[in-house]
Amino acid sequence: MKQSKIAPYLFLLPGCIVLGLIIFYPLVQAVWLSFTDYNIIQDPNFVGMENYQTMIESDLFWKALGQTFLYLIVVVPSLVILPIFLAILVNQKVKGIGFFRSAYFVPVVTSMVVVGITWKWVYAEQGVLNYILDLMGLSSVNWLTSTSTAIFAVMAVTIWKGLGYYMLIYLAGLQSIPSDLYEAAEIDGASKFKQIIHVTIPLLAPSILIVSIMSSISAMKVFEEIYVMTGGGPLNSSKTIVFLIYEQAFSRLNMGYASAIGVVLFGITLIISIINLKVMSKKEKVA
């Protein structure tokens, strides 16, 4: 195939200029800022490792880091497993199934601000959720104002908003499984449940991989639902690393310190992304 030597670079140029402007240049500058005491008002002074020192000695940093991992540990498996069942449900060939697929997708298209407001109202002390608990004979919970439940209540919203999205990814995977596999399993006498375990789940492996990657990326970056629903509270109990960065940078104007936390976050995500890339390239070789 003949092509000019510079053609590939010309095609890449506009996109790469933008990515350079919005990712790579800011990345370098963020690393530089992390070694300064920049606060928007005064010019940055180089302070060496001071921000990192402060960070390591900060209880709040470790708390937020722990809560970020808690977020990953709860949200990612939930978003990997629950939508599989939802996808199997909406893959049933019954009348009106299109309506249900769309209904489950509505939270996905709704902005997180409105979703957060909606759930704040559902979680309210005298709200619907506590009423349902009451009906089941359980005592009511101060979902968003108790330090032991706030972060889990926000996680539930992250999961709730993501369900419909990952459901569709699995649905696409389900529909690519040839139906004669199920027929063969049925001839062998496999029950519907056994078919799910032995046919559906193994053949969904590529989709499961995609969902794991995507949900872990978005769980690491979680911010808006926390901002809208708890503001990180009560007593910092729902603060994650990204929330801490936002708070330090734009409420306290500690831009240098915020950048240092950001660099640490980047380090963690880089490790995860390298693992992801390795898995992805393996998958590509197979495909």
Binding site: I22, I245, T269
Partner: peptide, 24 residues
């Protein structure tokens, strides 16, 4: 290298970049 660099941007949290982008 270009492809990996582009893909790696997916993992960089925007909250790290937003301070410099804001200044820019």
């Amino acid at each position: 290298i270009i492809f990996i660099l582009i893909l790696s941007t997916m993992m960089i949290p925007f909250q790290l970049l937003m301070i410099p982008i804001y200044l820019l």
